[in-house]
Design a protein around this nucleic acid. Structure first.
Lengths: 197, 197
DNA sequence: CGCGGTGCGTGAATGTTTTCACAAGCGGGC
DNA sequence: GCCCGCTTGTGAAAACATTCACGCACCGCG
């Protein structure tokens, strides 16, 4: 068993936050005792939609694509990469993880046949929107984008973008105000969220 | 010139939000006209701490490290990778981008000499905390972590973690509630933030 | 030089999230 | 069986964020 207080300490938040968040989805604890760890784990996986497995396609077999395929964490968390695509003939046919890279031209047919539900974009930015449209047309419900580019998707498709440059900029922002440049100008006002892991 | 309304449309937020956010840091627009694009760009770069260049070290010369070095966006945005480290002798000495991979054993000396300000962790998870401690001891002010692991840093060090599995889980969460499984159970209550790009 | 259209900056109002604080449930000791 | 210390679940309060709406500055035009 674990109490909301100990969970909170581990994550650097308050115990009230832990309890309120969990109470959004049900009543998993026992008063006086706390939460059963094994059961809580199952409940949270259910909440996150990890009770089932998801069929994922990766587009782009460059460094980012290779990093994704090398990462065993996906498989373990319930994500199966069922196809990898690239446009470059030099990459088509090579093996990446357990998959062989296919021509992006075959994406519409393969994605439909394999019932891909989530697409990961690891292409150069200029190809990103085009690939997005292919994935959406193939019926994916969610897209994870690693290309540094704003993408447009229909409202029914979930989109998340990870931009490494933006992450660095956020550090730059935190550092710039933590140790202001040289002059003795006063610190600027509010605005920044606290930087937490 | 560009108005807060047009900026808002581009980003999918409200014009009031644009104006309020900018007003946190100063008064950059002109009534009746809007914002001067070139000037606004300079001001925002200043706010984000991008008016100067930052000295970055990358630890881990695997796929993620290679992806980072290949990405020209950093250099353009003001981040100079001044050193790359790895532990694997097979990787030490090879060139990655414009840098030669050095032994992580030399990190303390090199990071101090090169005045590294930001460290990027692209190692396997089990090495991540150890490398973090080395970077902190070498005096970095910020750490960008790509290892799927919770890191501990002193309060004066800014930390950002990018966990690819977590990003996929967030999509899974959105998809699971958008199209609930098979049974006709009622949708659960609130809890999810809207998924925006 | 005055007028009308435009659009910023900002208090006030509204909405959302986080924190507080406490009744009620639970197990253990006696 | 009863008391006590512990911890959840949750309304109420406080803090925080977003949106509204309007005064005022500004430009262009006649």
């Amino acid at each position: 068993m674990i109490s909301s207080r100990r969970l909170a300490e581990r994550e650097g938040i308050t115990s009230a936050q832990v309890r309120k968040d969990l109470s959004c989805f049900g009543s998993f604890g026992r008063r006086g005792l706390g939460y059963d760890v094994a059961n809580l784990r199952v409940e949270i996986r259910e909440i996150l939609g990890l009770a089932r497995r998801w069929r994922v396609a990766v587009v782009g077999a460059g460094n980012v694509g290779a990093a994704l395929l090398a990462y065993r964490g996906f498989e373990k968390q319930g994500f199966d990469v069922v196809a990898v695509f690239d446009r470059d003939p030099a990459r088509i046919g090579i093996r990446l993880g357990t998959r062989v890279v296919q021509d992006v031209a075959s994406l519409p047919a393969v994605a439909a046949r394999e019932q891909v539900e989530i697409g990961v974009i690891a292409t150069p930015p200029r190809a990103a929107q085009e690939v997005t449209d292919l994935l959406v047309a193939a019926g994916v419900g969610g897209i994870l984008n690693f290309a540094p580019r704003k993408l447009f998707v229909p409202a029914h498709v979930a989109l998340r973008t990870v931009d490494m440059a933006m992450e660095l900029e956020s550090l730059s922002f935190a550092l710039a105000r933590a140790r202001p440049p040289r002059d003795g100008s006063p610190p600027r006002e509010r605005g920044a969220r606290s930087a937490r892991a």
